[in-house]
């Protein structure tokens, strides 16, 4: 039983195609990252999942119900991008308000704010909060009532490194508890480490939907090898490996995924000429760029 199922979802705004034929699913306990450049259709997709806007074609099932239905809304939490709560209310009052709207005990407001690290500022007006603090108010409201599906639009934007770490910690806990998580982000490095699967949108079309390891295999991008030669031996090493000498001691190589071991063997054979070796697999950045340009051409 999947928490979220999208099949053949299509949406156009006038002549612009926002989404075309998008299909994927999110299982309970799974964290799926939605990637794509600005205007790729991420926010539109999220709004369709939440039932805020309707799709032109395709089917969407949210926790076994229609998007925007009472059943779907009761168990779905949303964190919009750049949300600005009313500056006149305090963080605690705002969360109490959202608790009441969900039919929960307003007394949970303080524990929720504590969970996102805002306990000290709970009684201050949101107008005095920094961007990261406002983002954490948004996160606190998304945690109300043990949601089964979380839709988070750029949840880590504006957060400092410490809050980011605690945010991902909270998310891990939710996923372990069986909540399905769909989030969008531009911070590719943290997505790489903290999500189970990646969906890439490009101009409204889904160009990838897989685990990072599988995407890496499919893209077959070269692995970079950075070799630090012994002083004075850089030219010799570069010649032996047919590589590219970068400076006095460093030689850079890139090799196809299949040649990796053979290349390592060659390097090992050079023995004392090599001082150090760094192996850099293609990053999510590279993979992301690969799938986006592939779709564009």
């Amino acid at each position: 039983m999947q928490s979220l199922i999208l099949s053949h979802v299509t949406k156009a705004f006038g002549a612009t195609r926002a989404l075309s034929d998008v299909a994927f699913a999110v299982a309970p306990g799974e964290r799926v990252a939605l990637l794509g450049h600005n205007g790729a259709g991420k926010s539109t997709l999220m709004k369709i999942v939440l039932g805020l806007i309707g799709a032109d074609a395709g089917e969407i099932t949210v926790l076994g119900a229609a998007p925007g239905s009472h059943a779907a809304r009761s168990a779905t939490a949303y964190l919009p991008e750049n949300v600005a709560f009313h500056p006149a209310l305090t963080g605690q009052e705002q969360i109490r308000h959202y608790l009441r709207l969900r039919g929960q005990d307003p007394a949970q407001a303080l524990p929720l704010l504590e969970r996102v690290g805002l306990a000290d500022a709970a009684r201050r007006r949101i107008g005095t909060y920094s961007k990261g603090m406002r983002q954490r108010v948004g996160l606190a409201q998304a945690l109300i009532g043990r949601p089964r599906l979380l839709v988070l639009d750029e949840p880590t934007s504006g957060l400092d490194p410490v809050s980011r770490r605690s945010f991902w910690g909270i998310l891990d806990g939710l996923a372990a508890d069986g909540a399905a998580i769909l989030l969008s982000s531009h911070a590719l490095t943290e997505v790489e480490a903290r999500t189970d699967r990646i969906v890439i949108l490009s101009h409204g079309a889904m160009v990838a939907n897989d685990t990072l390891a599988a995407l890496r295999r499919r893209a077959a991008l070269p692995t970079h090898l950075q070799i630090t030669a012994r002083p004075g031996a850089a030219d010799e090493v570069a010649a032996a490996l047919a590589g590219h000498r970068l400076n006095g001691v460093r030689v850079d190589l890139s090799c196809a995924p299949g040649d990796k071991l053979a290349r390592l063997g060659q390097i090992a054979a050079l023995g004392p000429l090599v001082e150090d070796l760094e192996l850099i697999p293609p990053s999510l950045d590279d993979i992301y760029r690969h799938f986006c340009t592939e779709a564009g051409s």
Binding site: L50, L52, A77, L101
Partner: peptide
């Protein structure tokens, strides 16, 4: 304008 309407409409009610 504040972006809270989208959020409010995802709540039950």
């Amino acid at each position: 304008e504040r972006g809270t309407l989208a959020l409010a409409l995802t709540y039950p009610g």
